[in-house]
């Protein structure tokens, strides 16, 4: 793991086409030394999970603005579970009401970021999540 760059998948599940945030995060993570795979618009949960496993990513970041986050995240977490890939942490960014943040965390989503979160906050949280995962223990917030 130490010999290669950490690999992050940025996905936009659902039909919403607003990809400004996803692309900004992808660019920033790239600049921070990660290898970033952006999967474009309209990914199904199946596509995201299979890409994540095939590409052996270290973390999945999802951008969801359509309001369908609970359904989509439930599906992705189930698929990761079915594929024995629950060790890949998942973070979510989007317009997520507070009550739903709690629900997402209960599902096992590591971090949830709302609109206006600074890039440095996100980068730091990703670093911490990956470090915790690498240290062979569950990340603090899971």
């Amino acid at each position: 793991m130490t010999n290669r760059k950490m690999r992050i998948l940025i996905g936009k599940p659902g039909l919403d086409g607003h990809n400004r945030g996803a692309k900004i995060i992808a660019k920033e993570l790239c600049g921070q030394g990660y290898e970033v795979i952006y999967t474009g618009l309209r990914n199904s949960p199946e596509q995201i999970v299979s890409a994540a496993i095939q590409e052996a990513v270290d973390l999945i970041g999802l951008s969801i603005l359509s309001g369908a986050h609970l359904r989509i995240c439930r599906k992705i977490m189930d698929l990761l579970d079915q594929n024995g890939a629950t060790d890949i942490p998942v973070i979510v960014g989007g317009i997520i009401p507070d009550d739903d943040v709690t629900k997402l965390k209960e599902m096992g989503i590591s971090e949830v970021f709302g609109p206006g979160t600074s890039l440095s906050t996100i980068v730091e949280a990703i670093g911490n999540t990956l470090a915790a995962e690498n240290a062979g223990r569950a990340p603090l917030k899971r």
Binding site: G14, L15, D16, R42, S44, S66, G67, A68, R71, I72
Partner: peptide, 10 residues
Amino acid sequence: PAACGEVGRV
């Protein structure tokens, strides 16, 4: 199936 969860939403 791809419309699931998005019907009538926006």
